[in-house]
C-alpha cells in the first residue's frame, strides 16, 4: 500500500529504484558552496553499476549520503522508495541495517571478533535480514566457504586473516541475509591483481545470485567492463578540494 503511493509519486518510471538521488546538494558547511551536487542519479534493482572517480572526487561523501549516514542540505535520497530524510536517526540505522550491505577498502572487520562473528554481526542489528535466514550460522558458513574462507579460519580473530580473506569475509557479511543494495567502496584496491580479479568474480557471482543492486566504487577503470553501467563521479563534483 505504502509502496504503491510512493511509486505513483515518483511519476514516470513504474519500477521502484533501488537507490535514487534527486537534486541533492551537500557541503560540510551550509554557508559555503556545496561540495557535491547531484541533479539526478538512479540505480535500478539488480543493476551492477561502476562508479568511477579519482580519490577526492566526493566518493566517500556520496556513499555516506546513499547509506543515510550523512544527510544532504537539499534534495532527497531514496532507498527502495523510502527517503532517508523521512526517517528518524534510529529508523535510519535500522533501515540501513535491513537493506544495505557495505564493503570498505580495508579494515572491514571488527578485529576482536572472529570471521564468523563478523559475518553474523549485521543480523544483530537487522531482524529482517536475520528472519530471511533459516539457520544463519549454517548459511554464513556456506557462503564463506563459497568465497574461499574455510572452516579452519572461521574461529580466528579477524585481525589474523590476510587482506584478501578479510575482504572476502566482508563481502559475505554484506551479502548475508540478502540486503537489496550492496555498496562497495574500493573493495579491491588493497588486493593484488590475482586476488582482485578473483574477488570481483566471486562478488559479482554472488550479487547475481541474490539479485541485489551493486554500487561499486573504484578508481581502477580496468574493472569497469564487468559492470552493466559506468557513472563518472567527476561530473558531480562542484568544488575542487
Amino acid at each position: 500500500m505504502n509502496l504503491r503511493v510512493q511509486r505513483r509519486q515518483m511519476g514516470t518510471d513504474a519500477r521502484l529504484a533501488a537507490v535514487e538521488l534527486c537534486d541533492v546538494k551537500f557541503g560540510w558547511r551550509t554557508s559555503s558552496a556545496p561540495l557535491l551536487s547531484v541533479p539526478e542519479m538512479r540505480f535500478e534493482p539488480g543493476e551492477k553499476v561502476f562508479l568511477a572517480g579519482p580519490s577526492g572526487s566526493g566518493k566517500s561523501t556520496l556513499l555516506g549520503l546513499m547509506s543515510g549516514v550523512l544527510l544532504p542540505q537539499a534534495g532527497t535520497i531514496r532507498v527502495l522508495g523510502k527517503g532517508w530524510g523521512e526517517m528518524s536517526a534510529s529508523q535510519r540505522d535500522r533501515y540501513r541495517a535491513d537493506h544495505l550491505g557495505v564493503i570498505f577498502q580495508m579494515f572491514n572487520l571488527v578485529p576482536y571478533l572472529s570471521a564468523l562473528e563478523n559475518v553474523l554481526l549485521p543480523l544483530k542489528f537487522s531482524k529482517l535480514r536475520a528472519a530471511r535466514l533459516q539457520d544463519p550460522e549454517e548459511q554464513a558458513r556456506e557462503l564463506l566457504g563459497r568465497l574461499g574462507i574455510g572452516s579452519d579460519l572461521l574461529g580466528r580473530p579477524a585481525g589474523e586473516l590476510s587482506v584478501g580473506e578479510q575482504q572476502r569475509t566482508a563481502a559475505v557479511r554484506a551479502l548475508l541475509g540478502q540486503p537489496e543494495v550492496l555498496i562497495a567502496d574500493e573493495p579491491t584496491s588493497a588486493l593484488d591483481a590475482d586476488n582482485r580479479d578473483a574477488f570481483l568474480e566471486l562478488l559479482i557471482a554472488e550479487v547475481e545470485l541474490s539479485g541485489a543492486t551493486l554500487i561499486f566504487v573504484s578508481h581502477d577503470g580496468s574493472l569497469a567492463s564487468r559492470f552493466d553501467r559506468v557513472v563518472q563521479l567527476a561530473d558531480f563534483r562542484t568544488v575542487a578540494r
Binding site: V69, S90, A97, L100, F104, F107, V110, L121, S126
Partner: peptide, 16 residues
Amino acid sequence: RREMAVLRAIGAGLPQ
C-alpha cells in the same frame, strides 16, 4: 575509529 565506522555501516546507531 575504523571499528566505529564499521559498526555504523552495519547498522549500529549513534547512541549505541
